[in-house]
Design a protein around this nucleic acid. Structure first.
Lengths: 228, 228
DNA sequence: CGTACCTTTGACATTTCTCAAGTCCCGTGG
DNA sequence: CCACGGGACTTGAGAAATGTCAAAGGTACG
């Protein structure tokens, strides 16, 4: 079980990390193929806006390299980051005609861009592409539902540890994470404030669940994944 | 703005309620047609399990009447309710072969059931059906992202009020809600505990944002939606 | 009309947030 | 090479929100 100080009244299991790539993801990836054939490439610097809430949702993106965050704001300045997108992720495909969230570069990044109607037309011709699109939506839904559990029912230590593990998995480096985003980004993704994220990381370090090799580099210790 | 006692340091806008049905939802509904033609009907009593996490995901459901909750559990007994499904909602279509959440009846209900492969085969033949399926997934994703904001960044009063407004909209009764689920269900959906939900409802009543006409019936007062 | 369950309330504990200072790191320019 | 500045990160102390435990009301249904 988690060795870190999660409220003492209950035995709390480690949360399952997101699986990436999904076991049943078909290879070679028709989405990658389509973007490689058809997309233009754009570059963005950190904090550049890729698109804003309410913009026309007429383009679809795929990350070549770098990291993108998807977020929503309230008028009083609260921000919720729904998802981070990494190399290989598609994002920005929506059913409605307007964006329901904005997207911003976290790190310098290159994005492939295609027209939404172009992608949908190709999917109509190519059932492998259509099924990859559907698979991608479902994967996204599952990640968001995992996130929902985290925000609704997990304490700060669980949220942070789970995030670090998921990010490590996603980046393909199971035992070390080079965290690409700021503490503030982590906080707005995890529904915490920046000081709580920082304190929680310190606490996880003190309890031996992680080791810090610089503020943006964390080594995950093995026993985090164990269940008692 | 919200008149209810949300932390006093900031001006917090009312959260937008989910739109239902979505403005661009095509009519007549090809999904409804397909289920009406092809589905068997099953009945469930409150708390009956429709399917469990890890079950084979080989059936797809549509609510005829009643309410269904979709939930995930941890070993230590925490529960997160992702979504409630009402009359007309499809649920249970997944990309993977296993359920990632369980579904349970909240009220007595009747559900239409079809085989997953049957639905997908029909969608391959009928592009209107395919597009309705995609639309439904996207709508679900948007609702979940709204929920994500609520759990990550909204205080108890905002969560409860937003939930009541959304439920009223969803049930087609904009000013009165007949809440179909228990306080515990609300709590597990909103990431609160049952006592906090109860206290928050009392507080909203005291502040005039709602009126109670029985524990399960709430009248929403107009000025909840106003922005100062 | 009694019983079981759901809801509300109270008192107190815990977690997380807020505000205010540090500290660290890194690039820049002397 | 080293001082400097600025941003990011960390830490502390106290406040606020939410959770926990316990018990009292309500309500529905046999």
């Amino acid at each position: 079980m988690l060795n870190v100080s999660i409220p003492s009244n209950a035995t709390r299991p480690a949360l399952p990390a997101w699986r990436w790539p999904p076991a049943d993801c078909p290879r070679p990836d028709p989405l990658a193929g389509f973007f490689d054939r058809s997309a233009a490439v754009m570059r963005f610097q950190p904090n550049d806006e890729v698109f804003a809430e309410e913009d026309a949702a007429d383009a679809v993106y795929r990350v070549v390299d770098g990291v993108v965050r998807q977020c929503r704001f309230t008028e009083d300045g609260r921000r919720q980051i729904g998802e981070f997108h990494y190399a290989g992720d598609m994002f920005g495909l929506e059913a409605g005609r307007r964006r329901t969230a904005s997207a911003e570069a976290v790190t310098p990044c290159r994005l492939q861009v295609v027209g939404r109607s172009q992608l949908l037309a190709a999917a109509r011709e190519d059932s492998a592409l259509a099924s990859a699109l559907w698979q991608a939506s479902c994967d996204e839904l599952h990640r968001v539902q995992e996130q929902l559990f985290l925000l609704g029912r997990a304490c700060a230590a669980e949220r942070v540890l789970s995030f670090l593990q998921a990010t490590a998995e996603r980046l393909g480096t199971p035992s070390v994470v080079d965290i690409p985003m700021s503490r503030q980004d982590m906080a707005d993704h995890l529904g915490l404030n920046i000081e709580t994220v920082s304190r929680t990381i310190t606490q996880l370090r003190n309890e031996g669940a992680i080791r810090l090799e610089g503020a943006r580099r964390v080594r995950l210790c093995e026993d985090d994944l164990m269940v008692a």
